[in-house]
Design a binder for these strands. Sequence first.
DNA 1: TAGATTGTTAATCGATTAACAATC
DNA 2: TAGATTGTTAATCGATTAACAATC
Lengths: 233, 233
Amino acid sequence: MKHVKISNNVIRRLPRYLRRLDELAVAGVERISSKELGEKMRLTSSQIRQDFSCFGEFGQQGYGYNVLGLRAEIASILGMDRNFTMVVVGVGNIGRALLESFCFEQYGFKLMGAFDIRPDVVGKTINGVEILHADGLEELIKAEQVDAAVLCVQKASAKRTANSLLSYGIKSIWNFTNVELELDEEDIVVEDIHFSDSLLSMSYYLAESIDQESIRAEKAKRLNKKVAVKKQQ
Amino acid sequence: MKHVKISNNVIRRLPRYLRRLDELAVAGVERISSKELGEKMRLTSSQIRQDFSCFGEFGQQGYGYNVLGLRAEIASILGMDRNFTMVVVGVGNIGRALLESFCFEQYGFKLMGAFDIRPDVVGKTINGVEILHADGLEELIKAEQVDAAVLCVQKASAKRTANSLLSYGIKSIWNFTNVELELDEEDIVVEDIHFSDSLLSMSYYLAESIDQESIRAEKAKRLNKKVAVKKQQ
DNA sequence: TAGATTGTTAATCGATTAACAATC
DNA sequence: TAGATTGTTAATCGATTAACAATC
């Protein structure tokens, strides 16, 4: 597969396609055209065909795409069949929530362990996973060549912990700490989940939506007045 | 303020600017140029000046930007001073984690209540917030004109709950359910936090990074062989 | 075969970067 | 004043959309 550099925008759409195709599969749909899929996802059919064509030819003229086949291709592109391994580092509120309800396996990640340093947490078991002391992180990561870490420690120790993880050989960090990690290493993959950034973007659009609504209301009011005046005449 | 339509890319960068300016303020930095800020954030100075100029003239030639002043402008653009109100709907693992550790007030959102329907959850108090029965949602939202809801219910009830919230007058949904809501209403603001999408994007880049690493290793190996052969000659 | 729909090339649109006059 | 740095216009780059020949 000759990979010209794929744009980030395309990559970010792939998981959405996957989700949609899963829904279609559950609903028993066997094939779908780029036109139909585009209507469902509010994308143009052109964009969908362009996106897929970055990776190969998954469709068939006059027919469209086979739902299960396409789903499998995308899953493979995303690396879901690579048996990546992962550890959870920091079992506070968010770490615990992920352990309790996030299905790592479903996305191709095998959970190898969860770690913390607080005595009231270490030793407990959550959803079948025993919380170990972080002293054991280095050994596990090196022994099992763990690929990725979910970073859920407190802000204050985020950068330090991240750098330790790198030095143990972790290749990728899923970062829930709301800290910009700024790591020295070049080829480390960091994926941030910044709750606050998401909320603030929403806040902007909410403010805009309210402003536009009141502009509309204002216009309608003035229009009504005019109508009223006309009626009086 | 004459708002030409601001692109989504710009909006998504604003919270990052805010975070960075907060860090600078804490570090006691008073002024910063677009050049310096750009280096810190890995953006071009051009882009930074373009971004800000969408909203007004916040800098001063020959000087740069005042950190606190710029911070305040961005906070205001994001609507952080609008006293938005919010409810948490669904207090499972993720809802609880947010109640326990997410600082809504810091981002300008006032938490008006948390709701669930499960008898083992309703009546409990988390971080000073009493969990109420969802039967009370309609009354509270209408009485207090609540602006936004954090949607943390289970997948199966996500769409139904979202539609109820809309019918009660909610204007915005922060969606943690990992379901594409597809609401009928036009002017509702939805902001998704899709953990799985984020993880799968990371998975793609991790796979790519591993592949590239092994290509590099392969090349180095072949090079070494050549060198060894030369040395033998 | 006729109709449908792909994969791909070309055209358009929008976002980023570069350049520079204005000015603090 | 001289140096620095903005805000903005123009140039470039990249992403999306449109069009269409290929083909199932």
